[in-house]
């Protein structure tokens, strides 16, 4: 990893549309992801209310054999906070991209770092949420709700993790040799991915957390 290549190859190659290959590919990828998350969300909604045993997302449950009572498990205040953090990370991300386009080395680093940090904070919230659910007696093996909830939000979290790694890589390159306006496309790709992960969360927050 000694030599980090500069923006290479594409400037002098003919393209039919004048658009960058990678940008077309990432939009196709995002389109494909719509079906991926669509299937996960469908499964969650189909299985909603079909769990044989609790805990349940929106109502309390008493185990008939032990008499133990479990409260409604979703923590709206905490998730609202993490939703807010993720929304703000999208703002930081557009600002990072705008800074790179302007050639502003200082603010590109600041906003990239802020985005990565906000992403990491969101993941922290999710780790907290998952562990507290496990303590309250909900694992992916407990019931249908557990399986579909953990896998849907877990896959979203995995996407956020990949995005944070991507952001850190860009930040690393920025420190190593500086991101120039010619590199804006690289940041743009990351930004498109990042915003998409954000809009998926917008859907999840409403469909899974708020609608009862």
């Amino acid at each position: 990893m000694t030599a980090i290549p500069h923006e290479h190859g594409h400037a002098h190659h003919y393209t039919t549309t004048g658009l960058d290959h990678r940008k077309i590919a990432i939009w196709a990828f995002i389109g494909s992801e719509c079906l991926f998350f669509g299937s996960l969300i469908s499964t969650y909604l189909i299985y909603k209310g079909r769990s044989v045993v609790g805990p349940f997302p929106h109502e309390a449950w008493t185990n008939p054999s032990t008499g133990q009572t479990f409260p409604a498990i979703l923590d709206i205040p905490v998730t609202s906070a993490s939703t807010f953090v993720l929304l703000m990370s999208s703002l930081f991300m557009v600002l990072a991209h705008a800074s790179v386009v302007r050639g502003d080395r200082k603010y590109s680093k600041i906003w990239l770092a802020a985005t990565a940090l906000a992403g990491a904070t969101f993941l922290g919230f999710q780790a907290f949420e998952f562990t507290s659910f496990v303590h309250e007696g909900l694992t992916p093996r407990t019931n249908l709700f557990g399986s579909s909830f953990f896998i849907l939000t877990g896959f979203h979290g995995a996407h956020v993790t990949a995005g944070v790694i991507w952001l850190i890589t860009l930040l690393f390159i920025d420190f190593r040799r500086g991101l120039r306006p010619a590199d804006a496309i690289n940041v743009d790709l990351c930004a498109l991915y990042w915003h998409f992960v954000d809009v998926v969360w917008i859907a999840i927050f409403t469909l899974i957390y708020l609608i009862q």
């Binding site: 077309i24 719509c34 469908s42 189909i46």
Partner: peptide
């Protein structure tokens, strides 16, 4: 406009899939 097509078309299919699955055996 190309990007719009690349995104909106799959999005519509995705939403249609969710809605039709819910009609078929959801709530």
């Amino acid at each position: 406009k190309l990007f719009r097509a690349l995104f909106v078309f799959p999005l519509l299919i995705g939403v249609a899939v969710i809605v039709s699955l819910l009609f078929l055996f959801g709530q």
